[in-house]
C-alpha cells in the first residue's frame, strides 16, 4: 500500500505546489491592490496544503525525505502534477479560470476525503475544504465579472475557457496509484467529482455568459511526468537555490 499512497499523495502535493507557485508569480503585479492581497492568500493556502501533503508522503515513504526534499529535489519527469496547474498565468482571466477549475474539483474531492480511513488525510481535507470553498467564491466572482463585464473582458474570458478546457479532463483521471489508494479507502475516486465539478462550473458560466466548449482531444500526461515546456522554466526558478547551493539549510 505505501508506494501507491506515496505516489498518489505526490500527485496532490505537486498540483498544489505548482498552482501555488503560479499564483504567487502575481504578487506585487496584480491589476488592483485588493488582488495583491487576495492572490497571496490563495497561494499561501495552496503551498500550505502542499507542505502537509509532502510531509505525509515523506512519512509514508519512510526514507527520511522531508517536504523540501520532495518539493525541490526531483527531476522534471518525477513531478506528477496535472498539466492544468502548470499552464502559464497569461492574463488575469486565465489565472482566475485556472484557479476556479482546480478549486471546483478540489472542493468535492476534499469533502469526500473527510470520509477517508486515513486520519492524516482527513486532517488535511478538513483544513483544505474551507480554503477551497473561498477560492471557488473568489475566482468564481471574477469569472462572472469578467465574462459579463466589457466586450474586451468577455473575449479574454472566453479565450481562457477555450485554452484551458482541454486540461480539465486530467483532473478526473485515475492513475494506477490513485486507483490503488482509492481502493484502500485512503483517497477519494477522482472520477466521482465529475458531476459536482460540472454543476459548479455551469452555475458560474451561466452568470458569466460563457459557453462550455466540447473538447475533442483532452491533454493528458502530467501524472506520468510528461509535462509541457513551461514546466522546466518553472522548476528552474523553484529549484534555483537548492540546486545552486546543495545541502545547506536556510
Amino acid at each position: 500500500m505505501s508506494a501507491p499512497l506515496f505516489n498518489a499523495l505526490l500527485e496532490l502535493a505537486d498540483d498544489h505546489l505548482i498552482l501555488g507557485h503560479r499564483v504567487s508569480e502575481w504578487c506585487g503585479h496584480a491589476p488592483l491592490l485588493e488582488e495583491d492581497l487576495a492572490m497571496p492568500n490563495m497561494a499561501l493556502d495552496m503551498i500550505g496544503a502542499a507542505r502537509s501533503l509532502y510531509t505525509y508522503a515523506g512519512e509514508i515513504e519512510g526514507e527520511g525525505r522531508d517536504e523540501d526534499q520532495l518539493a525541490y529535489l526531483r527531476y522534471d519527469r518525477e513531478y506528477k502534477n496535472c498539466l492544468l496547474v502548470e499552464r502559464p498565468n497569461e492574463d488575469f482571466a486565465h489565472t482566475m479560470l485556472k484557479q476556479l477549475y482546480f478549486a471546483a474539483f478540489m472542493h468535492p474531492y476534499w469533502e469526500a476525503a473527510l470520509q477517508s480511513n486515513d486520519e492524516t488525510v482527513r486532517g488535511i481535507a478538513g483544513k483544505s475544504v474551507k480554503e477551497v470553498a473561498y477560492h471557488i467564491r473568489h475566482a468564481g466572482e471574477w469569472v462572472v465579472r469578467l465574462g459579463d463585464g466589457t466586450e474586451e473582458s468577455a473575449k479574454r474570458m472566453q479565450d481562457a475557457v477555450t485554452e484551458l478546457h482541454p486540461y480539465v479532463e486530467e483532473l478526473f483521471h485515475m492513475s494506477a496509484d490513485a486507483q490503488a489508494a482509492a481502493d484502500k479507502g485512503a483517497l477519494p475516486d477522482r472520477e466521482a467529482m465529475r458531476t459536482q465539478w460540472t454543476n459548479s462550473i455551469s452555475n458560474v458560466f451561466d452568470q458569466a455568459k460563457l459557453t462550455m466548449p466540447e473538447v475533442e482531444y483532452p491533454q493528458l500526461g502530467g501524472r506520468t511526468g510528461h509535462h509541457g515546456e513551461e514546466m522546466g522554466h518553472l522548476l528552474s526558478e523553484l529549484q534555483y537555490m537548492q540546486r545552486a547551493y546543495p545541502n545547506m539549510s536556510w
Binding site: 504567487s24 508569480e25 499561501l44 503551498i47 523540501d68 537555490m241
Partner: peptide
C-alpha cells in the same frame, strides 16, 4: 518569492 529556498521561507515571504 518564486525562488525562495524552502517551502517555509516561501510561505513566510509571501
Amino acid at each position: 518569492i518564486t525562488r525562495a529556498p524552502s517551502l517555509r521561507r516561501k510561505a513566510a515571504l509571501l
